[in-house]
């Protein structure tokens, strides 16, 4: 039996999440991934923004920083540059990373700074009561989309890759083992890693869209999963509204802080 106690702040439980919320699965898979990579607990740092998902940092027994809505990656950048020995993991939501914090996501990816960002994508603003997010699918209902949503969704994988992330993967809470594996791969990558985990918010999203139980939401997520190998042979039409899972990018690429030290620090010291 895996011993989670080593990594959690037991006195901070019960957590604030609704029962059946997918956030717990992502938290557990993150713990297993961090355990697998074997880092000293004192060298790990978790940073989050604001949202239900962003409360994750408070439950883990590492140094942790719960910041402002959307800004976790910017705080993380300062921490990584001030103390490169820290292994920096960011927990963020689809609104946190894709709306208010979109700019920081793009630029962290562009720099390829060694940070692992885990995006809890529940397709909604959970904490503020079910307003639409950049990943709410069209026609679904949100408290600010009572007539059905009309906007296009963000594709976090295309965004991360386009901006320069060296690792990008998508999975869902219906496959915790895969969540663990992808986060582990992201942690191993020396560079910017994005792991999008499609999750369930049955309370703020499902309830308004005829899926008020976590089980219904799991079924809805599972129905739409297409593994990447299969997706390659499918047309764009066939892939509409589907959740393509897999590792979209995993390459070696110069990491920002190492490059800073190798180039700038070295040259400046020579002067």
């Amino acid at each position: 039996m895996f011993n989670y106690d080593k990594y959690i702040r037991k006195d901070k439980f019960p957590h604030i999440w609704c029962s059946g919320c997918g956030n717990g699965i992502i938290l557990k898979s993150s713990i297993r991934a961090i355990d697998k990579i074997g880092w000293d607990k004192n060298d790990v740092m978790t940073i989050s923004g604001i949202g239900c998902s962003s409360r994750a940092t408070g439950y883990l027994d590492f140094d942790s920083l719960h910041t402002l809505h959307g800004r976790a990656l910017a705080f993380a950048t300062g921490i990584k540059m001030a103390k490169p020995k820290m292994n920096v993991v960011v927990f963020t939501g689809d609104g946190d990373a894709g709306a208010i914090g979109g700019n920081h996501l793009i630029h962290a990816a562009r720099r390829n700074i060694d940070i692992t960002a885990v995006i809890f994508n529940n397709n909604i603003y959970g904490m503020t009561g079910g307003q639409y997010s950049p990943t709410t699918p069209q026609e679904f209902v949100a408290t600010t989309a009572p007539y059905g949503h009309i906007e296009n969704s963000f594709n976090f994988m295309e965004l991360a890759i386009g901006a320069g992330a060296s690792f990008a993967a998508r999975t869902t809470v219906t496959n915790p083992k895969q969540v663990e594996n992808f986060i582990h791969k992201g942690l191993e990558n020396k560079g910017f890693s994005v792991i999008e985990v499609v999750s369930n918010c049955h309370v703020q999203f499902g309830r308004r869209n005829e899926m008020k139980s976590p089980i219904q939401m799991f079924d809805w997520i599972k129905e739409r999963i297409i593994p990447m190998s299969k997706a390659e042979d499918m047309s764009e039409d066939e892939l509409e509204n589907k959740v393509i899972t897999g590792v979209f990018k995993n390459i070696e690429k110069p990491e920002y802080v190492e490059e800073y030290d190798k180039n700038i620090m070295a040259k400046a010291e020579g002067e």
Binding site: R71, F75, T77
Partner: peptide, 24 residues
């Protein structure tokens, strides 16, 4: 020390808060 030009001023102040908490 290290210098970075961030993507905006929100990120700038966020980065220095992070760096300070890490000891710089």
């Amino acid at each position: 020390g290290r210098f970075i030009q961030m993507e905006d001023e929100i990120a700038s102040i966020a980065s220095i808060i992070g760096a300070s908490l890490a000891g710089s």
